[in-house]
Design a binder for these strands. Sequence first.
DNA 1: ACGGTTATGGCAAATGATTTGCAATTGTGA
DNA 2: TCACAATTGCAAATCATTTGCCATAACCGT
Lengths: 166, 166
Amino acid sequence: MPRSHSHHSHSHAEDAEPFTLDGLAELLRSKGLRMTGNRRAILQALLKAKKPLGLEEIQTEAVRQSKGGEPPDFATVFRMMALLEELKIARKVNLGRASSYFELVDSRHHRDHLVCTDCGTVTPLEGNCPVESLERQIARKHGYTQVTHSLEFFGLCGDCSTDAAS
Amino acid sequence: MPRSHSHHSHSHAEDAEPFTLDGLAELLRSKGLRMTGNRRAILQALLKAKKPLGLEEIQTEAVRQSKGGEPPDFATVFRMMALLEELKIARKVNLGRASSYFELVDSRHHRDHLVCTDCGTVTPLEGNCPVESLERQIARKHGYTQVTHSLEFFGLCGDCSTDAAS
DNA sequence: ACGGTTATGGCAAATGATTTGCAATTGTGA
DNA sequence: TCACAATTGCAAATCATTTGCCATAACCGT
Ligand SMILES: [Mn+2]
Ligand SMILES: [Mn+2]
Ligand SMILES: [Zn+2]
Ligand SMILES: [Zn+2]
């Protein structure tokens, strides 16, 4: 795919550009994809999210972001997320639930999560990932490439611990 | 098969009783549950497994363990696994696939996994878990109790890396 | 701005996985 | 051996994911 560095002032799609709507829009276009109202809304929802979102949540957040109008169809959200996964812009997060949850994946700020198995509260964990540095070692030891990981902690939050005791 | 001290065992999986068929049988009975041919076969399949098994696999391995006869119904395997999860004897493992996979959970030998996202190969990782010691810290810091975790690495195995390059 | 090309989106139906109801069966303790 | 409750097979229900089809709309070149 030819890269036209027409005006070098900004937005090289492949650069570690901070995840911004414009940056993502550019990236999509560079792949021959189109930027639509639905997609803008979905991306905004994901950008604003403080925790992984389910398809329903993306749908409702998206319509809120785009200030009203019809929410994107469920299938549309589904296809968009499949696309973003394909492009490694988003990833599925294992929250131990039946349906899928997604978050944008910024290679510099990936997050692990703490999930209350009772009330469902999700807390992104602060600080450095404790296993990121292992990816390289594991890759070498087992002859793997492109190693990523998924790390979640599950437990009972304070409230739910109390409730369980009574 | 020496059953040295199978009495005084009516309680939790915390009795660092080794995970053996008899031990598990006893545990189930202590909960008022019954030990049947199906259950014995399913447990044997799980005990023998070197990696997490899907419901189908449990079904086929179970019939092999019990040396023939009808394989347990799919719903039976499903209910058995729900039960074992409930009792914290087994857990679901996130292999990034659509359907669920299970493994017995021995608090002393829990395993994280390396999964090839292309061919599906699953490799239990040797050695100490790199985050087990964090569970306590996270529990304290966030006011959680009963904290567990799920850690999987994903990537392309040697073969699949080669194929992808061509 | 206009029009042709083609990605996209809505709708509904197909697929796939999980879960449940129910009657017949079977394990267990008495 | 009996009575009772747990278990199981089978089929149907539920829930989540995925796809086909065609009308629509984004983008490109004029
Ligand atoms: Mn991490
Ligand atoms: Mn671990
Ligand atoms: Zn909670
Ligand atoms: Zn592979």
